[in-house]
Design a protein around this nucleic acid. Structure first.
Lengths: 186, 186
DNA sequence: ATAGTATTGTAACGAACGTTAGATAGAGAG
DNA sequence: CTCTCTATCTAACGTTCGTTACAATACTAT
């Protein structure tokens, strides 16, 4: 009965430790201590340290991203992006840490080559996806691709502020900044 | 005679290692191996591992920032910021790695509490500094503070692209994006 | 109740870590 | 030539790391 619990608890604590100390700074012993279990328990549920780290990125992080994207409903385009960013303010602590860890790997500040390649693949999908969302609203804008690129760059910093630096970004400020970039569209 | 050389060589190699493997992933032994000197040499010039890391951030990184800022001459405001970002493309490999390491600490992905506080202090100076540069150009803009905030956020991602992700950003793209945010000013 | 499987624990392995004690080599001064 | 001081080395210390062999317990099905 405790299987699922224990496995999840280990992962939760691991997310915390990897976040604070990075991959190399995190020790299996410290994770076990915080989970309040013996050291080999972690090897019972995860093949090794790297396996534990990989599961957090490959499964938890990308599932979180998908969940986040699926919430998008297109009415007003500025409200769409404002909501997208603002929702991050209210992510659970666990999700925020998973997100933060994902960004850390995305910036190749942690993880290995294999995870970096996965991130690169994912990054390539970003521009086309936003182009799909925005193209109909940018008919009368000449440099539409540049606007989309700028928006993506802005979103990246806003996300980092909330998730990485752990700041609270007021919805009104988010809306202001997105409006400045998308000013004159639709 | 070789004193200055050896000390600098150790620091250069250390920057490389801290960049790739992070603080905890970097070992004094591997640094010594790449410098091609014995292990205690590093302790001859630096008090310990943390002292070596601290010198890179406290001295090298902040001196690089100051050097970068001092190059700014205000003629056209869009050209000013375009040049500021574009110059990063042509930073030496060493400076780029120092910059990258600084950003890593800035995002609290590495380093300790003490270095984080230094970064926080520095971050507080960013908005006022840009306000000083931009205020005269934003007389006829209503939400001037929001524009400055947006610009700072955009700059942050552009810098990260070049320095952290090690991409080359064409000058024209940089100018385009900055123009979109500063559109309508002056 | 018991056999068998799933879960957890104790204790240890070898390797690698940060750091230091102490020896050695080389150059300049007298 | 010898003394001194700086720069460098060899060798080791104690600690902690990831990982595993193996014993003990708890649960489940018969």
């Amino acid at each position: 009965m405790a299987e699922k619990d224990m496995r999840e608890r280990i992962k939760e604590v691991a997310v915390e430790h990897f976040n604070i100390n990075g991959y190399h700074g995190t020790t299996i012993r410290n994770i076990a201590k915080d989970v309040d279990c013996s050291l080999p328990m972690i090897y019972y549920y995860y093949h090794n340290k790297k396996d534990l780290f990989d599961e957090i990125i490959k499964k938890e992080f990308f599932e979180l991203l998908k969940r986040q994207v699926s919430l998008l409903r297109t009415d007003n385009i500025i409200e769409l992006y404002t909501k997208f960013v603002n929702d991050l303010n209210f992510l659970s602590d666990y999700d925020k840490k998973v997100y933060r860890l994902g960004i850390k790997v995305y910036l190749s500040f942690d993880g290995d080559e294999e995870l970096m390649e996965i991130m690169d693949e994912w990054e390539k999908t970003i521009l086309p996806r936003h182009y799909q969302i925005l193209k109909s609203h940018l008919k009368n804008v000449d440099n539409d691709i540049a606007v989309i690129r700028t928006l993506i760059h802005l979103l990246e910093t806003l996300i980092e502020s909330i998730v990485v630096k752990n700041r609270y970004l007021p919805e009104e400020e988010i809306r202001e900044e997105i409006s400045i970039v998308l000013r004159g569209c639709e």
